[in-house]
Design a binder for these strands. Structure first.
Lengths: 262, 262
DNA sequence: CGATTCATTGATCGAGATCAAAATTGGTGG
DNA sequence: CCACCAATTTTGATCTCGATCAATGAATCG
């Protein structure tokens, strides 16, 4: 739960009663060993999950064996919000390391959403952030070179890990094989290996026993056009959402280019 | 609004009062010419949009000019649900053709969500579907060949268009240039041209004046492993959501592989 | 200390990129 | 209806990034 708190507090200040409420509904916790399926294609989820410890991936495998990792789920990430729409899973979620996961019942979740605007807004933020990460993954795959993809992903993972842990290390455990990285980045493991070795020689990264160190984050960020905007880390004040009714104030900030009337 | 109705009714049966409610809050409609920006990076949305007529794209451009189209927005699509979290846009939305767009005020939207479980569920479905389409785009870019990407995207667009129009044609207007397709598929326009010409010769598609015809959809689908599951088109019964409280029934359908206790 | 999994390295290949020119298409105005 | 212009598409020649195939080297773990 701590990871989830850390993460949400990047976005909003939530007071203690809210966390008390959250604790009430996250009564169940489940553990998986590395490499187990947590959600399978076709499952109809009836619960939400919050990753508490460990890494997991959402991925799909085509009939001929090609695999694509869609995104990584780190501590503090909430998933299967789609359970709220009762839909079948169209992908698989598998643990990468041993993981511990909090389980929230759908009904309890809906209740809690109704109980507080701050909570709703925070969960909404988490959902938007996740979607934004997916979009960035699309840009990464569609328009970046191998070196950029790798650097960009490493920086994202590091930033997210730091967010979840409430730290700011330039070092992090990276429990991924070259095959995992390749499947996430649309490359082959061989090429990932070669490219990372080049990055090591260039002094961009250091690796040892599952831990990766990025000395000069700015340099790497510049090199692969990494910009954290898409992570929406800025803290917002949405107190206005809690105001009773009120006529709509301050709705002016321009958007769009001269629309044509009506 | 018709397109939106058509789309939602693929998923659920909604009665007339709900549409009356929807009509109440979608009072404003805006029109853009082809090629205008509807949402710009940095905009803070205070409204939601529903595409009524025409096509739009969500895209990002890197500093050096490389552009990636993240997804296509067709009639019936709702966007900027992220407005609910008050976040800045991290991408641009641009019209491809002339478009007409319905505008919904955030507050009105929240009101209507509270008023009906069916409505919430339907919007939630739309959000899940959109996210699912993003995930599929990731698989497409990461693990498919040029020919597969093109065929897969065409089939998706056709299916979605038919869903929005309430039709089932094997023909559809395709208002996209080779550059658009290339930017969506992580390819160059030259290669898109070549590949599509090969597909034409193979009798997989026909084109004339902005209209594309897919004679044998099954053949193309087989060729590029297209499977509609990710569009979540099946109609569901979620009447249980409207039940007052009730102890949780039928929550058995297995998910995950033997979790380890606790 | 074998056995298995994972990472690296080398040699070669190929899908798709790049550069450049020619051919279509689609307006627009005379 | 035709001539002209700009935008788009197609085609050709060549190059390159990353894939493929295959062997060798660490690690890790009973």
């Amino acid at each position: 739960m701590q990871a989830f708190k850390n993460r949400l507090s990047q976005y909003a200040v939530l007071d203690d009663d809210i966390w008390a409420l959250m604790d009430d509904i996250t009564t169940k916790s489940v553990t998986y060993r590395a490499g187990e399926d947590i959600v399978r294609v076709g499952d109809i989820a009836e619960t939400l999950f919050i990753v508490n410890k460990g890494w997991a991936v959402r991925h799909r495998t085509l009939e001929d064996g090609r695999r694509q990792i869609v995104n990584f789920m780190l501590p503090g990430d909430i998933f299967d919000l789609q359970a709220l729409a009762c839909l079948e899973a169209d992908h698989t979620v598998t643990s990468v390391t041993d993981v511990s996961i909090l389980v929230i019942d759908t009904r309890d979740f809906v209740q809690i959403l109704r109980s507080s605007g701050d909570i709703s807004s925070s969960f909404w933020w988490a959902a938007v952030q996740e979607e934004s990460i997916l979009r960035e993954q699309i840009v990464r795959l569609g328009r970046r070179s191998a070196k950029e993809r790798i650097g960009h992903l490493l920086l994202e993972l590091q930033r997210r890990m730091n967010g979840a842990m409430g730290t700011n290390h330039s070092q992090m455990p990276l429990p991924l094989t070259r095959v995992d990285l390749a499947d996430a980045l649309g490359l082959t493991p061989v090429h990932v290996s070669r490219t990372m070795s080049a990055m090591r020689h260039a002094g961009l990264i250091e690796e040892s026993r599952g831990v990766i160190l990025i000395d000069d984050r700015d340099r790497l960020a510049r090199l692969c056009h990494f910009n954290t905007d898409y992570l929406h880390l800025r803290r917002l004040d949405f107190s206005k959402f809690n105001m009773p009714a009120a006529e709509s104030q301050n709705r002016s900030k321009t958007n769009g280019s001269r629309p044509h009337s009506s």
